[in-house]
């Protein structure tokens, strides 16, 4: 076991997968010579060469569109979109083409495409770098949406994503790249299956359902509430598509009270999907209406106000207290 940051875990996993399977090709803006603007692809070009680690022009539709042809040619494309907000410039290739390659070829073509993209608040980026648009992506049939919450699951889930025969959006929280660390297995075959949530903290009184960096926020909120003797569970969804409905229903039914924490705007965000799923499966076990702690229904704000927009530990604690106030 070795202690690594999240971005180191991603880098290590990319190198392992490229070494394991020579069909894997990494490409995108600044992924080669520069090793990625966050160093996620650092050193790959030296190890695997310019044919397999390719700096592309600034062209998101090209990056996503060529992935379709590469996959049909038998390659395993791992494109990077430098920031998820930039994916709008290739959204038609993502939603209209990559997501439908298997479907519109009626099964002729696999689409083993893993699209890595950092996103999320907390690092004072300029506009369109921080947007949490996972709900928009999860609404596109044919795409898997995977959102690691730490170094360990980033490594295990990225390996699974690259090996998956279907397209996976692998969304990496900017704020977690260097602040989140885990002891990582040295096993080159460390793979964690997609579509399984993880109980990262057990508890009885209320469960916080979260994904990506909000899992870390939820953990801290749970610790704060524990000081008042409140027992808080945290469920890390890890992937939105496929959604682990069984794990979600099981823990919500046991706790009876639930808070969903997400960075995206509240209206039509994935948190709404989570709450709807809870209501369908756990209605008679609920002791209080579910609460959502989300971004607000505004565009992601400029840096001075972003701490008020991204759900904080304080807001998640307040959300938990609201669901706990309701008498059984």
């Amino acid at each position: 076991m070795t202690m690594r940051t999240m971005v180191e875990a991603i880098n290590l996993t990319l190198a392992r997968e490229m070494a394991r399977d020579d069909r894997v090709i990494v490409f995108g803006e600044d992924v080669g010579l520069n090793g990625g603007v966050f160093r996620a692809t650092d050193g790959l070009i030296d190890r695997f060469g310019r044919d397999r680690v390719v700096d592309t022009p600034l062209a998101e539709a090209l990056i996503l569109g060529t992935a379709v042809g590469l996959a049909a040619a038998g390659m395993v494309p791992v494109p990077e979109i430098q920031f998820l907000g930039f994916s709008y410039q290739g959204f038609h290739q993502l939603a209209g083409q990559i997501a439908r390659l298997r479907y519109r070829s009626n099964g002729r073509f696999d689409a083993p495409i893993t699209i890595r993209a950092p996103f999320g608040g907390g690092v004072r980026t300029p506009e369109l770098h921080s947007e949490a648009i996972e709900g928009q992506l999860a609404n596109i049939p044919g795409l898997k949406v995977v959102m690691p919450s730490g170094a360990r699951n980033a490594a295990g889930l990225l390996a699974a994503a690259i090996r998956d025969p279907d397209p996976v959006l692998f969304l990496e929280p900017l704020r977690g790249y260097r602040s989140l660390r885990d002891d990582l297995p040295d096993d080159t075959e460390f793979v964690e299956p997609l579509g399984r949530a993880e109980v990262v903290r057990d508890g009885d009184d209320v469960v916080i359902v979260a994904w990506s960096y909000q899992v870390e926020v939820a953990r801290r909120a749970a610790e704060e509430l524990a000081e008042d003797g409140i027992s808080v569970a945290v469920l890390d969804l890890r992937s939105l598509v496929p959604l682990d409905i069984d794990s979600l229903a099981s823990i919500v039914s046991r706790c009876g009270r639930v808070v969903v924490a997400e960075e995206a705007p509240q209206t039509a965000g994935f948190g709404g999907e989570v709450v709807a799923t809870i209501v369908e499966h756990c209605f008679y076990d609920l002791e209080a209406p579910p609460q959502r702690v989300s971004g607000y229904d505004v565009p992601f704000p400029m840096a001075q106000l972003e701490d008020r927009y991204v759900p904080s530990v304080g807001r998640v604690v307040a959300g938990c207290r609201r669901v706990l106030e309701v008498a059984p």
Binding site: V68, A71, A73
Partner: peptide
């Protein structure tokens, strides 16, 4: 059009 370029790129690489 980018699909064709991706296919050509993949053929070339292999």
């Amino acid at each position: 059009v980018p699909h064709a370029v991706g296919m050509a790129w993949g053929l070339m690489r292999q």
